[in-house]
Design a protein around this nucleic acid. Sequence first.
RNA 1: GGUCAUGUAGCUCAGUGGUAGAGCACUACGUUGACAUCGUAGUGGUCGUAGGUUCGAUCCCUAUCGUGACCACCA
Length: 767
Amino acid sequence: MNSIIDSRYDPNLFETEIYNKSLVNFKVDLCKNNNNYFSILMPPPNVTGSLHLGHALNCTLQDILVRYNRQKGNDTYWQPGVDHAGIATQIVVEKWLEKQCIDYKSLSNEAFIQKVWEWKRQSSNDIVIQQKALGCSAPWEYSRFTMDEGFIKSVTEAFIILYKDGLIYKANRLVNWDTKLETAISDLEIKNVEENGTLWYINYKIVNKNQYITVATTRPETMFGDVALAVNSNDNRYKDLIGNYAYIPYTNRKIPIIADEHADMEKGSGCVKITPAHDFNDFEVGKRHNLESITILDKHGHLLNNELIPDFIRGLYLKKARKLLVEKLRNDELLVKEEQIKHFVPYGDRSGTVIEPMITEQWFLNAKELSKKAIEAVKTGKIKFYPDKWKNTFFDWMNNIQPWCISRQIKWGHRIPVWYGPNGEIIVARNEEEAIIEAEKLCIDKNKLTKETDVLDTWFSSALWPFATMGWPDKSELLNKYFPTSTIITGFDIIFFWISRMIMMSLYFMKDIPFKDIYIHALVRDDKGQKMSKSKGNVINPLDLMKEFGADALRYTLAFLSVPGRDIKFGRENVKVSRNFITKIWNACRFLQTQNVNFNVNISNIQLKHPIHHWIFSKLREFKIGIESDIKEYRFDYITHRMQVFLRDQFCDFFVEAIKLQNDDNTKNIAGIIYKEFLKLSNPVIPFVTEYLLSIIDNNYSLNPINIEEIEIDINKSEKIDNIIDWIHNVRSIKHEFGKESKEYITVQNNIPNFGEDCNVLIKLAF
RNA sequence: GGUCAUGUAGCUCAGUGGUAGAGCACUACGUUGACAUCGUAGUGGUCGUAGGUUCGAUCCCUAUCGUGACCACCA
C-alpha cells in the first residue's frame, strides 16, 4: 500500500497515467459469449474542430452507462467514431484555407478534397484526445468515420437497394436553395427568423380595361416569374375580375386572374401573385390550375439575364434588384402602399443566407414509406424515449414527413453512385466497372458515361450509423453480438435529423430497431441561460475545465446537472463544488491511512458487532440499489446526490467519526471495506480518482463490487443508529441555539435517552 | 396560429395527495486525530395567480399570467 497521507488532491498528477493503465478492459472480446450485452452508439462528433461542453455531457453520460454495465459483468460495446459532416466541414475548411491565404475556389475538386482530409485527420485526432482526457472508455480501435472505406461501401449499397426498391428517385422539384453554398438543402436545415419587412402594394394593369388590380407582396422582384394573380372566389372586390388578364408591370406579359382558396381576403390586398418557381404555396396553386413555372433566378441569387426581366434590373443580385424595382414602382406611382410588417424569413442553418425556393433536379427519398414502421416501433413501445415527452415531437414530424432531398451540390461527401448515359439514362452501380457492364446491357455507349457530381446529404450516411459501423452489408460478429443496441444518448436537436432516420433505415435494412432506449439530454447553456456560441464569447472549453478541476470534477458536475427535460445552466462554480467533493473523498482516504486501516481484509473476516456496523452496511446497500435504479431511469443527477449523501453525510460524518471514538480493528476493517466499495460503485462517474485511490490502497484491486447480499444486516440495529443520529442533530441544534450554559442544554445532557449500552460511545458525538 | 415544456429559499434546481428539501450565497461559531478545496449550527419560501376535486393540494383538474423551445404560416 502506498501512502497519500502527505498529498493533497491534484488530478493533474494522475489522470493521464491512470487512463493509460486503467484496469478497465476497453477491448472487445468477440469470442466471449454472454447473453447479457450492453451496446451503445456514440453519436459521432462532426470533424469541424474540437469538442464543446455539449459533447462532454454526451460522452460523460455514455461513459457512465458503459462503465456501469462493464462493472456489472455485461458484455459491453461502445461504438466510437466521427462524422464527415458534409456542408459544415466544407465551410470550416474553406475558412481554414482562407486564413492560410489559400484561394480555395481556384483549387481543383480533388485538391480541395485532399485539404479536407488533411483537416479531418487533425480534427478527429483532437476529438479523441479530448474524449480520452474525459475518460471515455471506448474501444478506440473500432473507431469509424462516416467516409471510411467500409462506410462508402455501406452507403453505396444502401443507395442501390433503395433505388431498386423505388424509394429513391430523381425529380425536378421546388427545393430550398442556398444561394451562397449553391446547393439544395432540406427543410430541417432552415431556420425561420422573424424580421421587420415591408409589404408592398403594387398595381397591375388589367388588360383591356382602364383599371388596376392591387397585389400585395413582400418579394416584388419575383413578379417577373408570376404566372397568375389569385383572388378568393368569395371576395366581392375582385369577383368580377376573375377570368380577366393583367399585365406584369414593365413587361407586356399577360397573366390570368384566377380564383383560388389560397388567396386570403383578410391578408394584404386580398389579391396574391402566383410565382410557382419561387414559392412553395404558389407551386401548389400552380399545380392545381395547371400553370407553368417560370424561373427568374440563377443559382447565385441573381435575376436572369433574359427578356422576361426588364432591362433595368436584368442580371442583378436579388436585393439590389428589389431596391431598384421598388424605387421605380414608386416613381411611376404603381406602388400604392408600403406597409411595415413582421414576418418570418428562411435562413440557411449553415450559411446564414436567405434561402430561395428554386426548381432544380434533385434526388429524393420517399421517407413517408419508411416512416410507417418507425412510427409503429415507437408507438408499441419497442423503442422508448426518455423523457417520454419527446415521442410527441417525434410523432409530429414523422406523421407529416416530406420527401427527403438527399442530394447536395457540394464537394465534401459521398458521391452519389450514379452514372448518366449520353441521353440522360440513369445507371446506378457500385463502381465504374459495374456501370460499364450495365451500360453495355442497355446498349448505351459506355465511353460516354458521366458520373453524378452531386453528393449525399451528410445525414444519409449518419442514418446508417447503427449497422454500417458494425460491418453492414457484410455479416459480422459485431452485428451479431451487439445489434440492436441498447441505448442511444443524444440531444433533442437531432431527433429529426438523425434519430428518426436511423430508426427508418434500421427497420428497412436490418428489419429491426437500431436501439431500445433513446435518452435525450439537455442543451448546455451558460450560467445566465444563454446558448453558448463563439460569437457571444461564452464558450467554455472542456479541456480548460479539466485542467483546472480535473476530468472527474467535470464529469461529476455534468451528471449532477443532468435533470431530464431541463436545459443545463452551466457555471464553472459548479465544477469547483464538485472538485471540493472529490477532495473530500480523497481526504477520507488520507485519514483512513493515518489510522492504518487495512483495506484488504476479506469480508468473511469481519464481524458485525456494533449497531453502527449494521447501519453502515445497510446504507451501502441502499447506495448500491439506488444507483441501479437511477441508471435504469437515466437519473444521473440522483446518482451524484447519492454519492454525496453516502460518502459525506453517512460515512464521513458518522462512521469515520465513530472510529475516532471506537478504535478497534474490526471497525477499522469495516471502514476499509466500505470505503473501497464506495470507490468501486462511484467509479462509473468519477473513474480517475476512484481507480487511482483503489490502486493506492490495494495493489491487486479490482473494480467489481463485493456481494453485499451475503452479509446479514440487522435492520433494527441500523434503524437505531438512524434514531441516534436524529437525536445528535437535535442536541447540537440546542447547543448552538441556547448555548452551553443554558437550561435547555443542561436538561438534554441530563436526559440522555437509553439507546442501549452498545451505543453509549456514540453519544459523545452529540457533545 | 399549433404543439410541448416550465414557474418551489437571494441564485441553480430536486421533491411529495398529509407538518416544505439540497447545493451555492449569507450569518454565527469552530483549527477538538483526514479535510479552510473544511466542520457545526442557523437565517431564509402563503411552492406564479384565481377557481375546482378532496377530510386535506405545492402536487390532480380548469382558467389565467409570465418564461422557454419546437413546428407552421412565411401576400
